Amino acid sequence: NKFNKELGWATWEIFNLPNLNGVQVKAFIDSLRDDPSQSANLLAEAKKLNDAQA
C-alpha cells in the first residue's frame, strides 16, 4: 500500500544521510515505524538535521 512504499523510501533515504549518527538514524526509523503516515515530515526533519550537521 501507499504507506509501505513511502515508509520504505523514507527509511532508505534516512539510512543514506551521511551526517546522521547511528542513534539519530535509529530514532528517525523508530518514529517512521510508529507512524508511517508521517514519513514525509520525518524525512524532511532528518534532512534538516543532516544539513545542520554537515
Rank of each mutant, 00 (worst) to 15 (best):
N1G: 11
N1T: 06
N1V: 07
K2R: 11
K2I: 14
K2Q: 14
K2L: 13
K2F: 13
K2P: 11
F3E: 11
F3I: 11
F3G: 08
F3M: 05
F3A: 05
N4V: 02
N4Q: 09
K5Q: 14
K5Y: 13
E6T: 05
E6R: 04
E6G: 06
L7R: 02
L7M: 11
L7P: 08
L7Y: 12
G8L: 15
G8A: 15
G8P: 08
G8C: 13
W9K: 10
W9A: 12
A10S: 05
A10E: 08
T11R: 08
T11Y: 14
T11S: 10
E13L: 10
E13I: 15
I14F: 06
I14S: 02
I14C: 04
I14W: 03
F15T: 12
F15I: 15
F15M: 15
F15G: 04
N16D: 05
N16H: 12
N16V: 04
L17G: 00
L17H: 01
L17A: 01
L17P: 00
P18R: 05
P18K: 09
P18M: 05
N19S: 04
N19R: 01
L20M: 01
L20E: 00
L20A: 00
N21H: 08
N21E: 08
N21P: 01
N21G: 06
G22W: 14
G22C: 10
G22S: 12
V23G: 12
V23N: 14
Q24N: 01
Q24S: 01
Q24A: 02
V25N: 00
V25H: 03
K26Q: 14
K26T: 10
A27M: 13
A27C: 07
A27D: 09
A27Y: 14
F28Y: 07
F28W: 02
F28I: 04
I29N: 01
I29R: 02
D30A: 12
D30H: 08
S31C: 04
S31P: 00
S31N: 10
S31E: 09
L32R: 00
L32C: 04
L32Y: 02
L32E: 00
L32I: 12
L32S: 01
R33P: 00
R33F: 13
D35T: 05
D35Q: 08
P36T: 03
P36V: 04
Q38W: 03
Q38H: 06
Q38A: 04
Q38N: 13
Q38P: 01
S39P: 02
S39Y: 15
A40L: 13
A40C: 08
N41K: 14
N41I: 09
L42I: 15
L43D: 01
A44L: 11
A44G: 05
A44T: 08
E45G: 01
E45D: 13
E45K: 08
E45C: 07
A46E: 00
K47F: 07
K47W: 05
K48E: 08
K48M: 12
L49C: 05
L49G: 00
L49M: 09
L49Y: 03
L49H: 02
N50P: 00
D51F: 08
D51M: 13
D51R: 10
D51W: 08
A52H: 08
A52M: 15
A52K: 11
A52V: 10
Q53G: 04
Q53M: 14
Q53V: 06
A54C: 06
